[in-house]
């Protein structure tokens, strides 16, 4: 199958209107590891013939790291630009693979006049599976020990705990919960703009602590649903030299690999 990522401006020029906009996010666009998640999710959308589009060069950072660092000016500049772009295209529905983009688009853009139905890809995939549109082969992950690391911005911030787990369960995998999961989950260490700076003085890195908790259940795969968690936990696994035994994969990658897309 020839995979495509239709671009909003081009579709509109052709007089077409996509049903859903795939918000790729900065990590998904530029970070090499997150790009693989973006392509995995795009492949799923293609395989299911979903009428989607990306904004491409018209997409800007949602402003999440700026707002959380305390720089409201930069947040407003980016957010208002995005709201203008989205409203200009009359976008109704957005799906994103990044919980930070998800949270900002869903909870913070309405105050700026941006009202959309915003869906995280874990929810989107869960719906596709439940509707019978997405058939998961289980395949590569059947019976594998998979644990899931809750993203703070998906979990505590937006109370989405079941959707990513439902996606993992569709693989016929052995989903093992760690002690501190769901509302009790520990942050990977990247939120609040920590991703972009050195840690404050302390005795341990947060991702090392969290990875330790995840490795306690001897998983073969640590599933994540956030590009920043992905980076942090991957680094944590490398830090204890277990990268050959424990894979850190996004739930979109689990599906695309299981179905050999």
């Amino acid at each position: 199958m020839q995979y495509k990522a239709p671009i909003m401006s081009e579709l509109v020029a052709e007089g077409k209107s996509p049903e859903v906009v795939f918000w790729v996010g900065c990590a998904g666009s530029f970070d090499q590891r997150a790009q693989r998640v973006t392509t995995a999710f795009t492949k799923i959308l293609n395989q299911l013939n979903i009428n989607f589009a990306v904004l491409g060069t018209e997409e800007a950072c949602t402003g999440d790291p700026a707002r959380r660092a305390g720089n409201e000016f930069v947040f407003q500049m980016l957010a208002q630009q995005n709201v203008a772009t989205l409203n200009n295209y009359g976008v109704k529905k957005i799906v994103t693979t990044c919980p930070h983009c998800f949270n900002t688009l869903k909870n913070e853009y309405p105050a700026l006049g941006g009202n959309y139905e915003v869906i995280h890809h874990s929810q989107y995939l869960q719906t596709l599976i439940n509707d019978g549109k997405l058939k998961v082969e289980g395949g590569a992950f059947k019976g594998k020990r998979i644990t899931y690391h809750d993203s703070c911005y998906l979990g505590r911030a937006n109370e989405i705990y079941e959707a990513p787990r439902a996606v993992i369960e569709s693989l016929d995998a052995d989903l093992v919960e760690i002690n501190k999961s769901k509302a009790n989950g520990l942050c990977c260490g990247a939120g609040g703009s920590q991703m972009f700076k050195e840690d404050e003085p302390g005795n341990k890195r947060i991702n090392t602590e969290r990875t330790g908790e995840l490795l306690e259940v001897y998983p073969e795969v640590i599933a994540v649903a956030c590009p920043f968690c992905n980076t942090m936990i991957s680094d944590g696994v490398k830090g204890v030299n277990q990268q050959d035994d424990v894979k850190v994969l996004d739930i979109a990658e689990l599906i695309s690999q299981a179905n050999s897309y």
Binding site: Y3, K4, A5, I7, V24, C26, G28, S29, F30, D31, Q35, R36, T38, T39, T42, K43, V54, G56, T57, E59, A60, C61, G63, P65, A66, A69, N71, V74, M77, L78, Q81, S193, M195, F196, K197
Partner: peptide, 29 residues
């Protein structure tokens, strides 16, 4: 943080990538 603020203002992303490269990932599709 000053660096990411500047990047966000100039490149609309926290990293120093050109906005023109936002679709580069599609090459790997």
């Amino acid at each position: 943080w000053n660096t990411i603020f500047a990047n966000m203002e100039n490149n609309q992303a926290p990293w120093q990538f050109s906005p023109e490269d936002r679709l580069k990932w599609t090459e790997e599709l």
